Amino acid sequence: MNRRFAQVDVFSVVPVAGNPVAVVIDADGIDDDAMAAFARWTNLSETTFLLPPTTEAADYRLRIFTPGGELPFAGHPTLGSAHAWLEAGNEPKGERIVQECGVGLVEVRRDGARLAFAAPPLTRSGPVDRDTVREVAAALGVDMSEVVAAQWVVNGPEWMALMLGSGRRVLEVEPDMAALGTHNVGLVGPYDGGLPGEPEVRYEVRAFVPGVGVPEDPVTGSLNAGIAVWLRGAGLAPESYVAAQGTALGRSGRVHIIDDGTDIWVGGAAGTVIAGTVVL
């Protein structure tokens, strides 16, 4: 049957410069195999399916698939799907949108021209063991002495985040994807004084997920959320900042982080690039 469909670009005000997500708006009745097959066919980092919620507390339920399987949570699909849901004529029950997904309920707020989600709590944190760091650093072509810190920042996806000495060094990394294997690896490096013309851009971020068919993700909400929880908890980042991601892929992703003292909000622009129907 024909179902409404949107392909939304997330984390960039410039069309096709962020991270696209495929959103099936009327997904009720599609079985798991068909969802997985469609995600493989789109071959995007994520494809999502909007469904009726199973709890009165939520506005909708979201299922998120990569080409390699289902995720309990992901950031840019959350924002892109919320954008598509609103654009389809829906309104939240309360002040904020409430998304039901594999990690539970996730709040999304309208923040001017941007949407932002509340970073989920980390289900695993703390330092990554030295042997794992050594293995990952070797796959990245990075000397162990260059790794300033390495932390687990798991909030659904099994992210480990390695901090390097600078954003420029992050951009220089050329990973061996086969050697990375099933590791979900995020890199973060600071820009002292920000980027020229964009002083609010304090960090460069990259994400490598070859194990689920996404060698490098252009712009990654869940990873940036985990990094923000880590850096804010350790007192290493200001209350608000912007992270750049996608630079190495020719994108211009900008992830806006705001810690309001209660929640850490992860936000960015979202815009529909393709709209129509899909036969599923």
Rank of each mutant, 00 (worst) to 15 (best):
V229C: 15
N90E: 13
M160A: 02
A270R: 05
S145G: 12
Q151K: 13
I257G: 04
V188E: 00
V10S: 09
F49R: 10
R4Y: 00
V142H: 04
L236I: 02
S81I: 05
H83A: 12
T47P: 08
V10E: 05
A269E: 13
A244S: 15
D192Y: 00
F5P: 09
G165H: 13
A207W: 02
L115S: 00
E174I: 13
D263F: 07
V21P: 04
I25Q: 06
G89N: 04
N43A: 15
V242F: 09
L171K: 11
T123A: 15
P20Y: 03
R232L: 15
T262Q: 14
G18I: 11
D176Y: 05
I264F: 03
G80C: 11
N184C: 15
L115W: 00
A84Q: 07
V278F: 10
M163D: 00
Y191D: 01
E46R: 11
I274T: 13
P238N: 10
E95R: 15
P15L: 07
A39T: 03
V14P: 00
V21R: 01
E135M: 12
G181W: 02
G193H: 05
A270F: 06
I25Y: 00
V170P: 10
E87G: 08
V212T: 07
G233D: 02
G193E: 12
A82S: 15
F5Q: 02
P77N: 08
L79K: 06
V13Q: 14
S222M: 08
A57F: 01
T123F: 08
T182F: 13
R96N: 15
L187G: 10
L162A: 10
R134L: 10
P190R: 13
R110A: 14
R251S: 06
L162D: 07
P127S: 14
L195A: 04
H83R: 14
A161S: 14
A84P: 12
S81Y: 02
E146C: 06
E70F: 07
A139V: 10
H183E: 11
A269W: 11
R124N: 06
P53G: 04
G29H: 01
G104A: 09
V214S: 03
G235F: 07
G253I: 08
T220L: 13
E46K: 12
G80F: 09
K93N: 07
I30P: 07
A234K: 13
P92N: 07
R232S: 14
H83D: 06
P77V: 10
F5A: 04
T42F: 02
V170S: 10
G246I: 08
V255P: 02
I274F: 14
V242T: 14
E174C: 12
A116Y: 01
L236W: 00
G271H: 06
